Simulated assay, not measured.
Amino acid sequence: MRLIGLAGWSGSGKTTLLTRLIPELAARGVSVSTLKHAHHAFDIDQPGKDSHSHREAGARQVLVSSARRWALMTELRETPEPSLKQLLTRFDPVDLVIVEGFKRDPHPKIEVFRQANAKPWLHPADSAIIAVASDTAPDTTLPHRHLDDIAGIADLLLQGAIPLRDVLQG
């Protein structure tokens, strides 16, 4: 398994880019899993569902399963948020894990930048950024691809990905 990340400010287009990259990578025969860092108030469960009632009643973990998928929800309650390394150990083997978010962690990342977002570039202050995908030319010597160059960005992902064990041991 290999790992690389997409980093950028909220609204930069990370999710949009990722949903365009996954089919490109799949067409190349690359199996992909993703790890998305969410805002603190996210919830995949809904009031009125049995699983939500289980969690609200105090269950620490609720596993929901069907013939199409399963999901394990763990209530953190008083425990701290798991680290990137801890979360990465949960994946079944695939060719590539793409991390969306976790921009402060030191794994290799491609910065996603959209000029209209009016946020500063991340790459000048983050040595883990190995390339840039943006809608404008960055002032950097890092490799750069336009946000619409999906094949080129996929190439950068595959070239820049490192073995997952390096992240877990680092």
Rank of each mutant, 00 (worst) to 15 (best):
68 R>L: 12
166 D>M: 11
23 P>F: 11
63 L>M: 14
115 Q>K: 15
32 V>G: 04
106 P>T: 14
98 I>R: 02
29 G>A: 12
100 E>I: 12
28 R>I: 09
64 V>H: 02
80 P>E: 15
145 R>C: 15
134 S>F: 09
155 D>H: 14
127 S>R: 15
153 I>V: 09
68 R>I: 03
35 L>I: 13
157 L>W: 07
162 I>G: 01
41 A>N: 09
152 G>V: 11
67 A>E: 14
111 E>Y: 12
111 E>P: 07
92 D>I: 00
134 S>R: 12
70 W>G: 01
144 H>K: 01
1 M>P: 03
40 H>I: 08
37 H>L: 02
125 A>D: 13
161 A>N: 12
168 L>G: 04
74 T>V: 12
117 N>K: 03
34 T>F: 04
85 K>C: 00
142 L>C: 07
35 L>C: 06
120 P>T: 10
45 D>F: 11
78 E>L: 08
160 G>L: 10
93 P>T: 14
46 Q>D: 04
23 P>G: 06
96 L>S: 06
143 P>N: 06
12 S>V: 07
147 L>Y: 08
126 D>C: 11
62 V>E: 02
83 S>P: 01
5 G>N: 06
74 T>C: 02
1 M>V: 10
104 R>I: 00
139 D>M: 02
115 Q>H: 09
125 A>C: 02
89 T>A: 05
111 E>N: 05
86 Q>R: 09
144 H>C: 04
102 F>M: 11
57 A>G: 12
141 T>R: 09
143 P>T: 08
123 H>Y: 15
108 P>V: 09
149 D>I: 12
14 K>F: 08
19 T>G: 00
133 A>L: 11
25 L>G: 05
11 G>S: 10
61 Q>Y: 01
45 D>T: 09
17 L>G: 04
48 G>T: 10
63 L>W: 04
93 P>R: 13
29 G>Y: 14
39 H>Y: 10
150 I>M: 06
25 L>M: 12
155 D>W: 05
164 L>Q: 14
35 L>G: 08
99 V>S: 03
101 G>C: 02
102 F>W: 14
65 S>H: 13
64 V>F: 03
22 I>V: 15
19 T>S: 06
129 I>M: 04
92 D>R: 15
79 T>I: 00
47 P>C: 13
42 F>L: 05
168 L>R: 07
53 S>G: 01
120 P>G: 07
77 R>M: 06
20 R>L: 14
151 A>R: 10
72 L>W: 03
122 L>N: 05
24 E>G: 02
25 L>R: 08
156 L>I: 06
159 Q>S: 09
115 Q>D: 07
62 V>P: 00
140 T>C: 08
118 A>R: 15
62 V>S: 12
134 S>M: 08
156 L>E: 05
151 A>N: 03
7 A>F: 00
43 D>I: 01
23 P>S: 07
62 V>N: 14
76 L>H: 02
109 K>Y: 04
147 L>R: 07
107 H>M: 13
166 D>F: 02
57 A>C: 04
64 V>I: 15
130 I>W: 09
4 I>S: 08
159 Q>W: 00
133 A>P: 05
97 V>E: 07
67 A>S: 15
164 L>P: 00
130 I>C: 11
18 L>A: 07
123 H>A: 13
89 T>P: 00
132 V>P: 01
26 A>W: 11
87 L>A: 13
114 R>P: 00
